[in-house]
Amino acid sequence: MLSTFNFRVIWDYMGLFLQGLWATAWISAIGLTGALSVGIIACMMRISGKKFLSAPAIAYIELIRSTPLLVQLYFFYFGLPSLGIRFTEYQTGIFALSLNSGAYMAEILRAGVQSIPGGQVEAGIAFGLNYLQRLRYIILPQAIGVTIPPMLGQTIVLVKDSALLSLISVFELTRASQILTSERFMPAEGFLTVAVFYLLLYYILKSLSGWWQRRLIHRQA
């Protein structure tokens, strides 16, 4: 089946693929930054113990987790204009991606915070540290270590999810292969090549996560 595989076309379009790879990388990077910001805020609201803060955070997290990203994407893409908000496709896409991953990040952070023994927080209270100080000096430094591997896992999901942005005509890796397919009608060359690029990103992130996990075990031992 590889006999019909046209490597020349892939080579001709390599510039387009690399542009797509670059676009996927920066879209994911901005999306990740957004997701972390949203996730930290939502997590802090959720564990604050104050109903008026935790209730909206829980609603946000559960709503995001029970609906597909594609539906969220269409919701904002078709919905924001009727509210009079004009975003470009890129802005809508990155906005939806950040909100989506933010909910998962919030849950990962919460698990990390809850993994810290209650006695430490009590010790902090006994020292007279306030909530923010306890968070800054006791909880976060310890929680971040254990949350890095699941966060990298979520980053992998985010990179893959960014492929959906091609459906609202954002140019990125998957879009590049759709362009090749429509111009030359060579779906095999297009889609298999981007699959390889995605695998590359996946292995980079996965080995980063593995490296961190080994470091974590060494530190604890």
Partner: peptide
């Protein structure tokens, strides 16, 4: 790894557009 490392969107395109070839 292949299934988890590539977007499902790309996988379904592969199945739907390439297998016929």
């Amino acid at each position: 790894d292949v299934m988890r490392g590539t977007p499902y969107l790309v996988q379904i395109f592969i199945v739907f557009f390439i297998l016929p070839e």
